[in-house]
Design a binder for these strands. Structure first.
Lengths: 147, 147
DNA sequence: CCGAGTCGGTCCGAATCCTGGACCAACTCC
DNA sequence: GGAGTTGGTCCAGGATTCGGACCGACTCGG
């Protein structure tokens, strides 16, 4: 009898259930970039309006975005990051950085960020405890059930 | 004439073209966890075999994974991370951490990692230049064309 | 030598999701 | 009064994904 070995219970999979659908993270990117309105998002992401509607609903439902009325007459809405949404910043930065490293053409990265320290922002993933940069080989599993 | 404002040229979008399809990042997760074989990935991710075949091809084509023969008779293959693939570690860690923060049930995170410094690994995104943790509000755009 | 298991897939038809484009109701601005 | 803005909805066709059956080459135990 071959061990069925259920699909792994995993925070990565859970996160992707929320932000893993097509366009979801590009929507989040736009909100980080300051574009909070439906029409802006349509234009800057290229997502079909229908799909965008669906994604916004999922993201609001998951507590990543908040739908907020900014005009009464006529009623108009915009989308803002919740605290949980702001916590996605490392996800956005790491995706951005990987693209900069591996997919930038001869023109270099299309978007360059600057940290308040005055230098170009190159994001680095570090261990909160010791402050050192984290390499895959420096990490082990603690107390897990399965291989 | 309304400004058409082309979809943003963006490293995030480019990265998601490579690893944004369903199951792609879970495949990468499995490889990081040491499961390199087709059947293991089927079991541990839950992806349909068909889809997994397609994903592996995309990831190999994009240079994230490498398909390697580990047996001659019968011919058997496994998948290894390339350098580019290993560079996805921050992406994986940030997704994991967000799920741990916002989607862990009462049982807590299903997977706990330990850094070689001996502490539980809590990944933090820092600025390579100054070493400080990066907050969305600390970052501005440098020399961009558009809003 | 037989039967069961392993492994990395392929093939299929059905269900689901994504796509682009047309359309709309309020309201504002010129 | 006409054009534009805004935040959507509706639809039909196309692309993806789904689960499950199946397969060929080989190994292992008895």
């Amino acid at each position: 009898m071959a061990a069925p070995a259920e699909p792994r219970v995993c925070s990565i999979a859970r996160t992707l259930d929320v932000v893993g659908e097509r366009w979801a993270l590009l929507v989040v990117r736009e909100v980080f970039l300051g574009n909070h309105r439906f029409d802006q998002m349509v234009r800057r992401t290229g997502a079909p309006r229908d799909t965008l509607t669906a994604r916004l609903r999922t993201l609001v439902g998951a507590g990543v975005l908040e739908r907020r009325r900014y005009s009464e007459h006529p009623p108009r809405f915009e989308y803002r990051l919740t605290d949980a949404g702001r916590d996605l910043y490392p996800v956005i930065l790491s995706l951005l950085h990987w693209g900069d490293q591996h997919l930038a053409g001869r023109d270099g990265p299309p978007l360059v960020l600057e940290h308040r320290c005055g230098h170009r922002l190159v994001p680095e993933t570090t261990c909160h405890a010791c402050g050192e940069a984290v390499e895959p080989t420096d990490v082990t599993r603690r107390s897990t059930v399965q291989a």
